[in-house]
Design a protein around this nucleic acid. Sequence first.
RNA 1: GCCCCCGUAGCUCAGAGGAUAGAGCAGUGGUUUCCUAAACCAUUGGCCGCAGGUUCGACUCCUGCCGGGGGUACCA
Length: 603
Amino acid sequence: MPENKFKQQIANCTAEAFKVILPELFREKADLYLFDSVWLYEKIEVPKKPDMGNFALPLFEIAKQIGKNPVEVNKILTRAENKFVAEHEEYAHLSFSAAGGFNNARIKTEALAEETLPQILELDEDYGSSEEGKGEKIVIDFSSPNIAKPFGVGHLRTTALGHSLYRIFDKLGYKSVGINHLGDWGTQFGKMIVAFRKWGRHDDLKNDAVLKLYDLYVKYHKEEEKDPVLADEARAAFKKLEMGEHDEAHLWNLFKEVSLDAFKETYKMLGIHFDYYTGESFYNDKMPAVVERLKKAGLTRISQDALIVDLDRFGLPPCIISKADGATLYATRDITGVLYRWETFRFRKALYVVGTAQRDHFKQVFKVIELLEEAENVPPEKRCSQNLEHIEFGWIKFNDKTMSTRKGNIILLDDVIEKAITLAREKIIEKNPDLDTIEQTARQIGIGAVLFADMSARRMKDINFDWDVVLNFEGETGPYLQYTHARLASLLRIYGKDVPVDINYSLLNRSEEHRVIDLLYKFPEVITDAARDYEPYLIGSYLLDLAGAFNKVYQRKDETGRIDKIISDDAELTSARMALVKAVKIVIQEGLYLMGIEAPDEM
RNA sequence: GCCCCCGUAGCUCAGAGGAUAGAGCAGUGGUUUCCUAAACCAUUGGCCGCAGGUUCGACUCCUGCCGGGGGUACCA
């Protein structure tokens, strides 16, 4: 946690003031918590409304324990605090006020600006970066679509969340490792092989291959209902695939290639990079050794002809390692994957960005790893089981129903992106037809809208997919942030000079400006909060606050009702305000970057 | 049945022990001789699912119930 300098100063003043107003108590018990600035620091919170000040200490609890009325204590305390401030030059930028039982503290805008703006201007995109994760790796398993199936919006959440977390942890100094755990193995590929042989043609694999394969998959399921023999054929085909038969392997490889080509196009469009495309099939030859290890550790037993790890005493269903017919399951592959990743990366954390439906599955997998490490007497510092996290999230629904590949009520991600881009293009042509990068900008805005909509709520919430919401560019949306950013860029273009760092900070004295500076100061903390909770939406909602606060500055009216413009004849005032403009631009751009969204300079 | 998640304005969501529960969308009324109106200002709209309990203080924590969703041994 980055320590908040001003908050610490406020805690110091408060501690000193308590010593003054409670001299007897201090003489008796000098180490009491209310004289301890570290303890007070933890108790200080951010007021509900910005106009209540920058920080606040609720006095109810303290007052009760020293047997006094909080409102009375507050009056005396505030007076002592302000006296202390008056006597100490280094605290001169602080002021305290009593509001009922809340001891509110305010930081002078000038001091806040002087602390924050030079830092941002100097560090530029590195503002908010840290070295907390230096030398440590975070392995992030995300996106992981099934091959031979189209990429639906249902798959967007893991993709957007995972990619954002990748960038967030990188910013905090960790080395992020992105793994795309492709769904490229299992009985379903026996089905695909059978379907392709019966109804498919190689020409189908030339254009829109994934969609055509998907049609075959749907057709297969319809036919299978009428003709159960197909299921046997599919199982046989998968068996051959597993044994490495040439014809089956060749087809499977083709499916995989065309799918990867399509996926990579989508990822390229979204600006997403993976360090590894190690799908389920990657672990095929690594599983037998793991199964042996589990057996040797004494964790397994046979139950109903299957090899299982009993987890009953942990309130979990048994983890099936191999089926009655000897075939492995996804749990086996995931266990193998954890062990492989631990050996390969020695990660600080391994994150699995996978939907909430697989909660029990990951509990089982993680528990099996824990039991294995215990059984093998792995020294605590070499264990990974405590570093595994399932980053779960709710469903994307459509008309309040979950989307399913089989039933066909699936919305293709490509369609969503395309519609969003088209709409963005229309808007640009309407509003800024002379823009010479219309295509690129439309792409940035359309994708920004889609990604932001996907990350605008807490992970655990289900999202009901709504075209009107995704295609809305007004209000709390990605395009709103991008628009604000473009405005800032425009101001810098018009200003046309380098923004000086040594400005007169006291000129940034409007309450609207204070709010902006206060928010800029908080950006680093927002990033660590987002990382701690694995919640990119925290960054999004922060950016909305910041953009909103800036837009108020931008459209602030003076006493005569005229817009108080940022660029004016007053050179000194203008340069101070331009420093603010540049700082806001940097933070919005970087914040959007952390969400995987681009920030155009013009739109 | 058991376990988990969600329930806040008409809609989508913030707030997760503290101040009068906040935003956006939708609705209504305004602001531009233009530093990008994809913006800004004002305004309508709330038994925070229900009932108890803990606390100086509960939308927030605990218990029970209701509604929605998910999981619950060989799919992922």
